[in-house]
């Protein structure tokens, strides 16, 4: 049984102008001690998936259907109390997109970690929580004596490490990092990616790395899901995905990434822009930008099917 098994997850934002269909019929699984990358361009629904998994969507965000099976139990059906006691921080922890810039400036980092521990583990004393904060600092490569610092006394990379420490405060089984490299310089980013790899090994936790940058995912993950306009269009083992992407969007996305090690770069782009999710295209959501689009692509939504073991694709070109 996978640690996390998401089936047909569908999340909408109910706005005055109608439902924004941000995530629709998304299915994927994360095994124990494995890392999955969630890739896709701005606005495709990556963060919405993360917020859905923890049931911390804003009020207008609604899980419309689907199951989120965590250790076999459906998060969608859980009460707030169950979520607080078993899931958030303890089961699944999230490093929010831009978290390093959202640390509360008026509290010491230590106080913020202690607070997180006390909320989710009320039996832990303040003393113990402070000790744990120091251990966490060590774990993420920060000097434990600096737990008494305020966020502004930290550089960008140190803040990101502090956020990772905070996420690990209650020994989660699954850690989600939403855009962990954005706004960091390449050297610091490499340090953070290395830390994520080491943590996965050392703690044997599972990881979901969310990024619009495929190269961050290839650095850290075993499997990858590629999203487009609220749908996962392809899911596979990472090596398989890069060797043999099947979905035209996945192909174009992979091809459009310049690599510092390659001789040539063809400046490949995908014409057009992603659709408005208030009113996504009929059939395959990618058909308006797809160079292989056929008649059926406009009319019928392609099924997300397994074409070889562990390799799923939603495209009319693939698998009859």
């Amino acid at each position: 049984m996978p640690l996390l098994d998401v089936r047909n997850l569908t999340t909408y934002y109910m706005t005055r102008r109608g439902p924004v269909r941000a995530v629709e019929d998304v299915s994927f699984a994360v095994e124990k001690a494995q890392a999955m990358g969630l890739a896709g361009e701005s606005g495709c629904g990556k963060t919405t998936i993360a917020l859905s998994l923890l049931r911390i969507l804003p009020p207008e965000g609604k899980i419309v259907r689907g199951q989120i099976l965590f250790e076999g139990k459906d998060i969608v059906k859980m009460s707030e109390k169950e979520l607080r006691e078993h899931i958030r921080w303890k089961g699944i922890a999230l490093i929010f997109q831009g978290a390093m810039n959202a640390l509360n400036p008026v509290y010491k980092i230590k106080e913020q970690i202690v607070e997180a521990i006390k909320i989710h583990e009320p039996n832990v004393t303040k003393r113990e929580a402070e000790e744990r904060a120091k251990k966490l600092f060590e774990l993420v490569g920060l000097d434990p004596s600096r737990v008494d610092n305020y966020p502004h006394e930290f550089s960008g990379g140190m803040k990101q490490r502090a956020c990772i420490a905070m996420a690990l405060a209650c020994n989660p089984k699954l850690l989600i990092a939403d855009e962990p490299g954005t706004a960091l310089d390449v050297v610091v980013q490499a340090q953070i990616l290395k830390l994520l790899r080491e943590l996965k090994e050392k703690l044997s936790i599972s990881l979901i790395v969310i990024s619009h940058d495929l190269s961050l995912i290839t650095e850290t993950c075993d499997t990858i899901a590629i999203m487009y306009a609220g749908k996962i269009v392809e899911f596979a083992d990472i090596v398989e995905m890069f060797k043999k992407p099947l979905h035209p969007y996945a192909q174009a996305l992979i091809e459009s990434f310049p690599s510092i090690s390659s001789k040539k770069y063809k400046f490949v782009s995908i014409p057009g822009a992603p659709p408005n999710l208030l009113n996504p295209p009929s059939g395959c959501r990618f058909h308006e930008r797809c160079k292989y689009a056929m008649d059926i692509c406009k009319k019928k939504e392609p099924e997300f099917k397994e074409v070889s073991k562990g390799h799923f694709v939603a495209c009319h070109l693939v698998g009859g």
Partner: peptide, 15 residues
């Protein structure tokens, strides 16, 4: 050396 490469079989970025 720190630049990540979008290819899972390539070298990992180095610190």
């Amino acid at each position: 050396a720190a630049v990540p490469i979008p290819d899972p079989t390539a070298r990992r970025s180095e610190v």
